[in-house]
Design a protein around this nucleic acid. Structure first.
Lengths: 345, 345
DNA sequence: AATTATACCGGTATCGTTTGCGTAAATTAA
DNA sequence: TTAATTTACGCAAACGATACCGGTATAATT
């Protein structure tokens, strides 16, 4: 069975009018007599007429929908961001079409291709962890697709970007460790290509430098899959805790990495923060209830989604090409809790 | 700027053919000579031709997209379910359009209206906590929209449903409490209208009855907003812990309720499970890391999403009206952890 | 009375694609 | 040689809505 909506033609036929008259009556044109308007409006209301958005899209060459590409929906950061995107889209009369890259480059390329071919008016995207080459994005963008880069932003200039101050976030988190007496701080980051990874690692390094702590390159670890695979993190942790370096603190640079590290520590009976302190990037809303309560860097995901969507829609609806590109950088929040508490002597 | 894709007309003009010939060549029709086909195919490939899905939708009266209505995207259960839906949709060539009701009846009605007017081919939906009257769904459904009800299912028969065995989940959780020595078990549930609420409360009641424990009606609490508001839960907890009944165990019937209760207990220094045992419905993947580790009823959200999407797409693509409706009921998993451990004497 | 203005409405092209029908040319059959 | 058939393509309608370009009837103006 099929859902068949009433069309302007049906109204025209029922009332003995032409489609153009009905169309104009519905759009309240001055060329239509009040009586005719009333008749049409009444009939339309009674029969619950809605203009067919697909026909409109075809005519107007716009679909009033925006695509969202993230690596994983079932991730608190991204679902909160999508929440923000959806709320703005709803307000402005757009719908949201979602696609996932699952941190896979091929899937990212095909998903973008897919969204573009689905005639979305624009795309908000965060690149996958495997993405070091942005030419597929660049290409689509230069062909005229409206795009806003968020979270894991691309490295070319003329595009709206929405991200957080990852450098400062990592710098502050590392400094927080140092102030609390931790000496040998490791950093477990996402895939090395990512903008967020580079910035976070840089913040981490600079914090060490500024506090005159010698950087040990072995203390920096990268997860190609961003912790999507537990084993990836477990291996790193095994290496870190059983190797020479033996860090007394770990800065975990993603949600999944953070959780995986906690799980590893619990399984291996590694006491947090006694044996190893932990600060994690996380947007889960119950990190305060963990054992121990977790010091986290929290990102304004919902807000990021809202801003990205607003920029995108503004760009879509702009008459002339955008010349000035925003590079919105929001602040993160460091919630200090037990997992990184002050070292006792 | 606008993203302008190449059309069949462009190809026709470039090669000096008619659009119909190009169309047929692309669809590999027998009426087109091999040479012409080759020319067209080559040109199409070189210029990255993709058929305009909007034009196709208009013609075929189908959009190859499905709508998803949930109350909140940023909820682990629903984001996992959406994940499952998206994965099936992707496989079958559909895209997913999402909408949120935010547990609000009005917003649910308008969101459904919205999805329908956006010409989706079908809708997977979970009703809001305020929804006791299903006539808006019933109406849309009887007008021919393909729909699958999941999680919080509707009460009318001729529709595909995908849910979990909420009765058994609550029954087993309650029984688990009883076996571990808890005597005065409270149940904090979602809005009373919801199918999942009724089933869970029923399971709770029957478990008590079967173990010859007198039911205290005051021990059953309902959250109209499903715990979306912390205050809602805090009030209930205040009433429960400071009132006469003083339960020694609580069955929390939703993700948010569970988290809120834990947070309340932490703030009020109520020891879990010593002062009050806790079992919660939750799909978060770090409940094992909480303090104390949390006994949870976990739902196969991803699987539910997959099944719902499969049923919907099968229905969409079915030539004749469906007569047999599935009522898929999946099992939940009870993960026993510290928050409900055995009472000492 | 002829012209002009105004009010109202219809015809048709358009968006991109598919498809039934028509037809010229080429080929085959008689 | 002529008729029948096949091959290979074009024309036009259709999907739903809009908008330009008209057109007609009545009323107002010269």
């Amino acid at each position: 069975m099929k859902f068949e909506a009433i069309t302007i033609k049906d109204i025209a036929k029922a009332l003995g009018l032409s489609t153009s008259t009905v169309s104009r009556a519905l759009r309240d044109s001055y060329e239509i007599s009040p009586e005719t308007k009333e008749k049409v409006l009444l009939y339309a209301k009674e029969n619950n007429y809605r203009p067919n958005p697909i026909a409109l899209s075809l005519k107007e060459k716009r679909s009033s929908s925006i695509g969202v590409l993230v690596c994983e929906i079932a991730n608190s950061f991204f679902s909160q961001a999508i929440n923000g995107i959806e709320s703005v889209a709803q307000e402005k009369g757009y719908n949201v079409i979602i696609a996932q890259s699952k941190e896979d480059f091929e899937k990212e390329v095909s998903s973008l291709q897919y969204l573009a071919s689905r005639s979305v008016d624009g795309i908000v995207f965060s690149v996958s962890g495997e993405t070091s080459d942005f030419s597929h994005v660049q290409q689509l963008y230069s062909r005229g697709m409206n795009m806003v880069s968020f979270d894991r932003v691309v490295d070319f200039p003329d595009i709206h970007k929405v991200s957080v101050d990852n450098y400062k976030a990592a710098y502050d988190a590392t400094t927080h460790f140092i102030k609390n007496g931790y000496k040998n701080i490791a950093c477990v980051a996402n895939a090395a290509f990512l903008s967020i990874t580079k910035e976070r690692v840089e913040g981490y390094k600079d914090a060490l430098k500024d506090h005159k702590i010698q950087l040990n390159p072995e203390n920096i670890y990268y997860c190609l899959h961003g912790g999507l695979l537990y084993e990836e993190v477990a291996e790193i942790m095994a290496h870190a805790t059983k190797g020479k370096s033996k860090p007394d603190a770990i800065l975990a640079c993603s949600d999944k990495i953070t959780t995986s590290i906690m799980r590893y520590c619990q399984q291996e009976n590694i006491a947090i923060p006694k044996q190893v302190g932990l600060v994690g990037f996380s947007n889960l809303d119950l990190t305060d209830l963990l054992a121990p309560s977790l010091t986290v860097v929290q990102q304004p995901a919902y807000e990021m989604g809202r801003i990205a969507a607003e920029l995108l829609i503004k760009q879509i609806e702009s008459k002339r090409p955008i010349k000035e590109f925003e590079d919105v950088v929001l602040a993160t929040e460091l919630h200090q809790r037990a997992s990184s508490e002050k070292k006792k002597a």
